[in-house]
């Protein structure tokens, strides 16, 4: 099904939320307001937005260390996300997870993950749950090009295919595993070619082209929902920020950065949306203004939130521990 006007606004809003959230976090990090490590998703917005628009709240996703975009696209509350990044008591995880572990199981977001490639095996879990209980829930496993080289991803894709689980593996190939280029760390021409090894559909799409991602993801998610098993989608894109904040990105040339800016997923989406008259300038302006207010409010919410009580160190390890 092609993008309706209503969905156009939805995906645009998701992408803008991710971009503004990440730009704001970068700024806050530079100001020293955000502790720890942050890995920002800006540049990859079309992937999370184009995939997650096909999911319901009952569907699940597993994520990566670069997980803010997945959270936003899956509907995690922005205020609670920002408070979590700050380490505040009102955070999505009560300040115990931080940027690398933001989660909201109620929203089907099974957590950003600090271990590269760990999400593959985890994603088989809700897949197995849906199959065992006979529900039509689908699970999407987001992973990076770096994770593609972990044995866990091979194991997970094979297991998901052996068990015909309702899964979609979405590889976000942003070109670099930390600073190591995909051309160096990946022996295959395309990560999607590996799908052949598991007898599942595999396709590479432009990770900056929301329309292409939307259509490809729809087909794969529908296939999973019909009980026909997993698919692998490789989205080739880029990230604006470094591996983590503080990374000067010396491994990218200026030409490459320039080339990336020219294929900005949000700009491209706007341009094509306007050309096809699926979006209007007025709608774009309305979303931009609204989202800017949402992000501003999220920062205020986070800053005004209390730090967790010191007793919180000791809770939530177990449900019950005599």
């Amino acid at each position: 099904m092609s993008l309706t006007s209503e969905k156009m606004i939805d995906v645009y809003e998701t992408m803008v939320k991710i971009r503004m959230f990440e730009d704001k976090v970068a700024e806050l990090f530079a100001e020293g307001k955000v502790p720890g490590f942050v890995h920002l998703y800006a540049g990859e917005e079309a992937i999370a937005a184009g995939v997650c628009i096909h999911l319901t709240e009952r569907d699940y996703i597993t994520s990566t260390h670069r997980g803010h975009g997945h959270c936003i696209a899956k509907g995690v509350n922005i205020n609670s996300m920002m408070a979590e990044v700050y380490g505040k008591a009102n955070g999505a995880c009560k300040g115990k997870g931080g940027s690398m572990h933001i989660a909201d199981v109620e929203k089907g977001m099974l957590g950003a993950n600090g271990i590269v490639g760990a999400g593959g095996p985890l994603a088989c879990g809700p897949g197995l749950m849906a199959k065992t209980l006979g529900t039509d829930q689908v699970t999407v496993c987001f992973f990076g090009d770096g994770a593609a080289e972990q044995g866990t991803m091979h194991e997970a894709m094979n297991l998901a295919c052996c068990w015909t689980l309702p899964l979609v593996f979405v590889c976000e190939n942003n070109g670099y595993a930390e600073s190591t280029p995909c051309s160096y760390h990946c022996a295959a021409k395309n990560i999607s070619d590996r799908a052949v090894a598991y007898d599942m559909p595999g396709v590479t799409v432009d990770g900056t082209d929301l329309f292409a991602i939307y259509e490809t993801a729809e087909e794969a998610i529908d296939r999973a929902r019909r009980g026909e098993g997993p698919s692998l989608i490789e989205c080739r894109g880029f990230r604006y920020y470094g591996h983590f904040e503080g990374d000067a990105i010396l491994y990218m040339t200026e030409e490459e950065k320039e080339h990336n800016r020219a294929r900005d997923p949000i700009d491209n989406f706007k341009k094509r949306g306007l050309e096809r008259r699926l979006l209007s300038e007025a709608q774009i302006a309305e979303v931009d203004t609204r989202v800017a207010a949402i992000i501003k409010e999220a920062v205020e919410f986070a800053e005004e939130s209390a730090w967790p009580d010191s007793e919180e160190v000791f809770t939530d390890v177990y449900v019950n521990y005599p």
Binding site: Y60, T62, V105, L110, A118, G120, P121, L122, A123, C124, G125, P126, G127, L128, M129, T132, T152, A156, L159
Partner: peptide, 9 residues
């Protein structure tokens, strides 16, 4: 990993 994921869902 599937056990962890299934248990949490």
């Amino acid at each position: 990993g599937a056990a962890v994921g299934a248990a949490s869902t």
